[in-house]
Design a protein around this nucleic acid. Structure first.
Lengths: 241, 241
DNA sequence: GACGGCAATTTGGAGCTCCAACTTTGGGAG
DNA sequence: CTCCCAAAGTTGGAGCTCCAAATTGCCGTC
């Protein structure tokens, strides 16, 4: 962001922008190492780094002897492999419809959009929202915390059954709803999370950001947090750079 | 794998193994660049590359002025952002329980485990399996193909309702089932997929591998394939190396 | 017009070096 | 015993170079 960024990141940002906005279409050649050094007035090392990062992001492919090209469809980086333990709720929610022994604590309230949430829902800052907080429990033990935000205009009637939220309501009334998994990361829990999830000290959490869309309109964005001692990293997939 | 691999990948593989099997516990220091060059008899460039790759995989952190350390909990690489378009089925299956306008073609058959599937289910090769193939349609149009494999011993009674498979059955009978998303990737479709999904030429597919576990026993592994023209890459998250 | 082979170009591995910024450690002064 | 500073070590950016393997385009020959 800052102008004091490493030069190779400046090159990465420049080329990435061109790929995303389409000025560099699929299969278009990326300037070679030699051309980049001249064009941006940098050394070969920086040019190389830039190409390596773009390739690692899956936006370009290097073909030895030929050059680097924009990928027709960006390669998706493999996920780390993780699993939820036996007593936790799978994301796939297959259990929900089957009367599993899971319980939900739900609390909805009216709030104003923060900058982050406003951005994710394509709303103006401090727009009115319905904020719903689910704590999912198994055998009384909290296994998952989810906080979702919906534009207030959608919050008409709240159905009795906790897991049936806005998305289920929308889709049962014929609206096609789609889902984006935006980010998965592992991080240190916030104080409130330590409290509600009854976390021992030093336990990290898995954080998943999701957004549900009705057409091209985001209608709900949710943050799902699962304690690290309630999931387990099985295997880390090698990144082949 | 081969002994003709680049040397830096050999170092990566060696250190990764030590982290995964625990001989390098969380927060343990990784040998410095200088130490690695001596230990493995390589140049600084190779040592550097190895550390960079391990850091990009999220297994270690570099602290400038101090050293590289094993991460207490590996950092998960952010997903690319993608979305399914309006007419496709979301993975989250929230729609399933709500009477959505989706239909399933299902065909189950008895097969023998291939090497790949046997590995994923922790079975011997050519073990008997139930192979189930779902084609998910919306308005008659195929939007998703899922092929799942279950050990044959589990295939007692097949319920009438297609989406209620083994997993739903197990969990309704009190068994806690967990899910691992193993891999997400974009690739060229296979001929059979082109056929069943009615794919135009040149369209890639999004491929998701999942495994469901009952305790520490894998009970189902599935490959979900979605045509690229039925999902859309919204944004590619920068990898900060 | 077809073909074969050579030369230029390109990636990717690997080596070396210099330097700024930062952490850690140990020793000496007070 | 405490405090502070200086030296040593470490990461990460950046530069340069050499080379093997692969691709591509061109030129001359048949």
């Amino acid at each position: 962001m800052a102008s004091s960024d490493p030069v190779y990141l400046r090159v990465v940002a420049d080329i990435r922008r061109q790929i995303v906005d389409g000025s560099l279409p699929p299969d278009a050649p990326i300037p070679s190492r030699a051309q980049l050094t001249r064009k941006y007035n940098i050394g070969e090392t920086a040019a190389r780094h830039a190409l390596r990062v773009l390739a690692a992001e899956g936006l370009i492919v290097g073909r030895v002897g030929s050059g680097h090209y924009v990928r027709a469809r960006p390669a998706l980086t493999p996920l780390h492999r993780w699993r939820l333990p036996d007593h936790a709720a799978p994301f796939g929610a297959d259990l929900r419809s089957q009367g599993s022994p899971l319980t939900w604590d739900r609390r909805a309230e009216q709030v104003e959009a923060t900058a982050d949430i406003a951005h994710r829902l394509h709303l103006a800052e401090s727009a009115p929202l319905t904020r719903t907080r689910y704590v999912v429990r198994s055998d009384g033990r909290p296994v998952q915390l989810a906080v979702s935000h919906e534009p207030a205009e959608f919050a008409e009637t709240i159905p009795e059954d906790p897991p049936r939220g806005l998305i289920a309501r929308l889709s049962s009334s014929g609206v096609k709803v789609t889902e984006i998994v935006e980010q998965v990361s592992s991080r240190v829990p916030e104080p409130a999370e330590i409290d509600t999830l009854a976390l021992p000290a030093g336990v990290h959490v898995l954080h998943v950001e999701r957004t549900h869309w009705a057409g091209d309109r985001p209608v709900e964005t949710s943050d799902i947090v699962i304690p690290a001692d309630r999931f387990r990293l099985v295997y880390s997939h090698p990144l082949h750079p």
